[in-house]
């Protein structure tokens, strides 16, 4: 049985509204940053707003609302937060490394290059007797 939202008590409604607005605002700012930041590497940082406390705020709001409205503990939203946190870095890293590889191959300026030749061709003594 889920009660309608209008029946929530004021403190609960305020808490739900607060976390929902914080989460939504962070996701919006992240999207704006994704649009406006000048370089690719800088744009990588903006969506992390939505995937950290953006999702966190909305998750908390959902947990509070459904726990209060159905008068039982609803916390399975934690799984969404957990899996988003664990999986998005993989995507970010994949994009970042693809960009890094492209810029290094194109000999772009401003990209760190530790080894004078490509990282694939660096001298490695430690694997000489393998394979």
């Amino acid at each position: 049985m889920i009660y309608p939202a209008a029946d929530l008590s004021l403190p609960v409604a305020l808490a739900v509204a607060f976390f929902l607005l914080v989460g939504a605002a962070l996701a919006l700012i992240g999207a704006i940053g994704f649009l406006r930041l000048p370089s690719f590497y800088e744009r990588l940082h903006a969506p992390a707003l939505g995937t950290s406390w953006g999702i966190g705020g909305i998750m908390l709001a959902s947990m509070i609302y459904f726990t209060a409205a159905s008068s039982r503990l609803v916390i399975h939203e934690i799984l969404i937060g957990l899996f988003v946190t664990v999986t998005t870095p993989v995507t970010f890293m994949l994009l970042a490394r693809a960009a890094l590889h492209r810029d290094r191959t194109a000999r772009s300026h401003g990209v760190p290059r530790k080894y004078p030749i490509g990282p694939e061709e660096r001298p490695r003594e430690d694997i000489s007797d393998e394979e």
Partner: peptide
Amino acid sequence: AIILTSTPGSVWMEYDSY
């Protein structure tokens, strides 16, 4: 890597095991 990348403002790019 997860901590640094999911923190907005820093992205882990590569680890050099060498």
